[in-house]
Simulated scan of single mutants.
Amino acid sequence: MRLLSTLALSSLLALAPLVAVAQQSYVNIEQRLSAEQMQATGLDALSSAQLALLNKLLSQEQAVVAQQVEQSVRDEQKGKPPERASKEPISSTLKGSFSGWSNGTVFELANGQRWRVTEGSLSLGKGKTQQNPKVTIAPGLFSGWYLQVEGQNSSAKVQRLD
Rank of each mutant, 00 (worst) to 15 (best):
Q50L: 04
Q50G: 13
L51P: 03
L51T: 06
A52I: 01
L53Q: 14
L54C: 07
L54R: 12
N55Y: 07
K56V: 07
K56Y: 14
K56M: 13
K56A: 11
L57C: 08
L57F: 09
L58H: 06
L58G: 08
L58S: 09
L58R: 14
S59A: 15
S59F: 05
S59K: 13
Q60Y: 11
Q60L: 11
E61M: 11
E61V: 07
E61H: 14
Q62F: 02
Q62G: 10
A63F: 07
A63S: 08
A63T: 10
A63I: 11
V64T: 12
V64F: 12
V64P: 04
V64R: 13
V64A: 13
V65T: 13
V65C: 07
V65W: 11
V65S: 09
A66K: 04
A66N: 09
A66I: 09
A66Q: 10
Q67P: 03
Q67K: 15
Q68G: 09
Q68P: 06
V69H: 06
V69D: 08
E70S: 15
Q71Y: 12
S72L: 11
V73R: 12
V73E: 14
V73I: 14
D75F: 04
D75T: 08
D75L: 14
D75P: 10
E76K: 10
E76V: 15
E76N: 15
Q77F: 14
Q77M: 14
K78I: 07
K78F: 12
G79C: 06
G79Y: 05
G79N: 08
G79L: 09
K80C: 10
K80S: 12
P82T: 09
P82C: 11
R84I: 11
A85W: 12
S86P: 02
S86T: 10
K87N: 12
E88H: 05
P89Q: 10
P89R: 08
P89L: 07
P89C: 03
I90V: 15
I90Y: 02
I90C: 03
I90K: 06
S91L: 05
S92H: 03
S92G: 01
S92L: 06
S92C: 02
T93L: 06
T93S: 09
L94G: 02
K95L: 10
K95P: 00
K95Y: 03
G96P: 00
G96C: 05
S97A: 08
F98T: 02
G100L: 03
G100W: 03
G100E: 03
W101T: 00
W101L: 01
S102D: 06
S102H: 01
S102Q: 05
N103M: 01
N103S: 00
N103P: 00
N103R: 07
G104E: 00
G104W: 00
V106T: 08
F107E: 03
E108Y: 00
L109M: 01
L109I: 02
L109C: 01
L109G: 00
A110Q: 12
A110S: 10
A110I: 04
A110R: 00
N111G: 02
